[in-house]
Design a protein around this nucleic acid. Structure first.
Lengths: 258, 258
DNA sequence: TCCCTGTTGA
DNA sequence: TCAACAGGGA
């Protein structure tokens, strides 16, 4: 068995795939002994998804040699719908096989399994340079999702403006202009905090539709970290429950003002 | 008044009609002094719906002489949407009338009523011979529905394979192949049990779209009974809450292997 | 493709 | 009782 990985809760993979499926049609799951990784551009090559599931995220993980499992995300999502959130999920793939097997087992005596056909997906493996962002903002992921959805109603482009005073999300639309300002704040629960690390104030604009998609990753993590620099891609980072187990990151190129 | 029937809960009829409406466009409700009955083929003549509501299912039931009430199921469904689930529902039909009257009354003082036009529907009344099935499987109706829906995503044809070890539902599709295995199991609640009565192992295939429709009857009963024989129609039987009050049965001709 | 409604689970 | 997910319709 060239590759075998067990998740104690199928929920993790369900969330991750849900967050991915509106952006990418087909992706490679690159498996190595350290874990699983996905890097994929969206179809219009404006956004990039980067997923890292470390070996520690799995209850069992064995990968004899690196292998790239290319899957259709929509199909994968359907396969995972067969699993209840708390089912155990086993992924298996033999050396030369052209399918990957998903087996999910609930607490009752139900065993569902699926052989998903693998695809050859050409992927330019990108090295994403570690960025130093002028602003790093951390805010509740649900709040970020809410803001993106609300502003989406009024326009396609969002301006993000961050300084020590706070972070402002703005949209100009046909029917008017809207802003949401979040000031830094303390809170009992860490995920309810809003924190800003500002080396230099930043103003930059993005296409809202991608941000709306990114924000769907909210169930992964209570808070989201936004990295912002002028004229550089935005980073939206969602840690897994335990940050050591990995994370899901989204990058989005800014809109250049006309 | 040639025919009058009262239901203490409109919910029963709502459920029954919902389960029927994706299969049949128009049906005859055959009323006699023993109760109401529907037998109808789906439009492609592959599936058959058989509903029996015994006189005991009604809080009051009077049928002076047998009468066949032909209704458009979609319209009937709309009429029943006027009723809240717990409303009392009174059906009335005069001798020569060309409408049937539905009156539903809630606990508040709301009374809604509707005269639904009757239609003349020719129906070949079929005698369904009592079958002796090689396998009778009883399983939670919600689980059956879940399986049909999940597998439907991957293909149009489902193979059902039952033996003493369990019952397996399988589908082969373009993106892969899936199986769900249910083993016999005990449970506290009777409807959560999975039981198999096997005289002879059976493998038989069906068009999933009909099974998905059948499975919509799940709200009628916590468990469903599947009757299977090689090369014979499948039976899916849903008892009413009290089995003495009647049942809803679906039959589906198998797909013949090419 | 997006929106809305209904259903199910927490 | 409230929130999230899924399915159907426009």
């Amino acid at each position: 068995m060239a590759f075998e990985a067990h998740l104690s809760q199928a929920l993790l993979l369900k969330k991750v795939v849900d967050a991915m499926k509106d952006l990418c049609k087909e992706v490679n799951f690159d498996c190595s002994e350290t874990g699983m990784q996905v890097q994929a551009m969206d179809s219009s090559h404006v956004a990039l998804v980067s997923l890292l599931l470390r070996e520690s995220a799995f209850s069992e993980f064995k990968c004899e040699r690196p292998v790239s499992l290319g899957m259709n995300v929509e199909s994968l999502s359907k396969v995972l719908k067969m699993c209840s959130p708390s089912d155990t999920l086993k992924l298996r793939c033999n050396g030369g096989a052209d399918t990957v097997n998903f087996q999910c087992e609930g607490s009752d005596d139900r065993i569902a399994d699926f052989d998903l056909k693998l695809m050859n997906i050409e992927s330019e493996h990108m090295e994403i340079p570690e960025q130093h962002y002028k602003v790093v903002a951390k805010l509740p992921s649900s709040e970020f999702q809410r803001i993106c959805k609300d502003l989406r109603e009024f326009g396609e482009t969002m301006q993000v403006k961050a300084s020590k005073e706070g972070i402002t999300f703005s949209v100009q639309g046909d029917v008017g202009a809207g802003n949401v300002l979040l000031k830094p704040r303390e809170a009992d629960k860490p995920e309810d905090k809003v924190t800003l690390t500002v080396h230099e104030p930043v103003t930059v604009t993005f296409a809202l539709r991608y941000l709306v998609n990114f924000a769907k990753a909210a169930p992964l993590c209570g808070s989201v970290e936004l990295g912002l620099s002028p004229d550089a891609p935005l980073l939206a980072k969602y840690d897994l429950d335990n940050a050591d187990n990995g994370h899901m990151q989204f990058y989005l190129a800014p809109k250049i003002d006309e």
